[in-house]
Computed example of a mutant assay.
Amino acid sequence: MLSGWRKIGPDPTLLAWAKAAHPLAVAALRDTDQPLRCGGTWAVGLDLLPNAPDGRVEGVPLPWGLLGLEATALHPAQLSTVHPGYPRPSAEETESAFRFRLNRDAAHLDGLLPIGPNRARMIKEPHAWILGLPLTTSDAAPLVVWEGSHLVMQAALRAALAPHPPETWGDVDITAAYQAARAEVFRTCPRRELPGLPGEAVVLHRHLIHGVAHWAEGATAPAEGRIVAYFRPVMDSVQNWLMQD
């Protein structure tokens, strides 16, 4: 994947999975105590879908062969749900963070967590890949990717971590290298919006910079919002996360 992403479908097996998952997702989002963020316009939906470890929901299998991914044990899917007006300012974000969310789609690399009082970025969740499965028909707030950005990020992080023993890579502050590489991505990599429909899927390289576009004027979604289920299984080591292509 030179672009760092690929889209799959539409396919009836993916549509069957999305139809089975949708009512479970709506119920899980309704019953969760996870707060809405971004001024009430975004539900993060971490680990909310009651799928089986092989991805099946209500007996409907996840079509691993179609996805081209090696079957692995999965966590309950994230249900990233966006509502009209996304994003709005909120107390949980600084003004600069809100502007970045609005103007740069909150572009980020999955797996890096802010650690300590200085919120140093460290690789704490080394995901193998990112799989997105739309559950609602909507043109609102699509996934955004920067094509080829995984190659920029790989080169920058490998260089930043090369002086350190591999077993310590998950504890190294990579904030400066990450921010500089992301700035290069904005300068050199094309930004692409990837709206999706039930019956489709998108697979992202684990090092791809991605985010969510704002809710554009005239965009539509059902009452429950624009819902995408995401799987991000964790790899066995930060070293493999960084060094494997």
Results as ranks from 00 to 15, higher is better:
Ala52Phe: 07
Thr72Asp: 11
Pro50Gln: 14
Val44Met: 13
Asp54His: 10
Thr81Trp: 02
Asp47Tyr: 14
Ala71Thr: 13
Val57Gly: 09
Trp64Thr: 01
Pro53Met: 09
Pro76Gln: 10
Pro53Ala: 02
Val82Thr: 13
Trp42His: 14
Arg56Lys: 09
Leu74Ser: 01
Gln78Tyr: 07
Ala73Arg: 11
Gln78Gly: 08
Ala43Gly: 01
Ser80Gln: 07
Gln34Ala: 15
Leu62Val: 02
Asp54Cys: 10
Pro50Cys: 14
Val44Glu: 15
Leu48Glu: 03
Glu58Pro: 06
Leu36Asp: 01
Gly39Pro: 01
Gly39Phe: 08
Ala77Gln: 05
Gln78Pro: 13
Ala77Leu: 08
Val57Ile: 06
Gln34Met: 14
Arg30Gln: 13
His83Arg: 12
Glu58Ile: 03
Leu67Phe: 12
Gly65Cys: 06
Gly55Val: 08
Leu66Met: 06
Ala28Pro: 00
Ala27Pro: 01
Asp47Trp: 07
Gln78Ala: 12
Asp31Lys: 12
Thr32Ile: 12
Asp54Ile: 14
Pro50Lys: 12
Thr41Lys: 10
Glu58Phe: 10
Asn51Val: 08
Pro63His: 10
Thr81Cys: 05
Gly65Arg: 15
His75Gly: 10
Gly45Lys: 09
Ala28Phe: 01
Val82Trp: 09
Glu58Ser: 11
Leu74Cys: 02
Val82Ala: 02
Trp42Tyr: 15
Pro35Ala: 12
His83Asp: 07
Gly59Asp: 07
Leu48Pro: 14
Leu66Lys: 08
Asp33Arg: 12
Val82Tyr: 07
Val26Lys: 00
Gly45Glu: 02
Gly65Trp: 11
Leu79Val: 01
Ser80Met: 08
Pro61Phe: 09
Val44His: 15
Ser80Asn: 09
Ala73Phe: 02
Leu67Lys: 01
His83Thr: 08
Arg30Val: 15
Leu66Trp: 03
Val60Gly: 05
Gly59Leu: 04
Leu67Met: 14
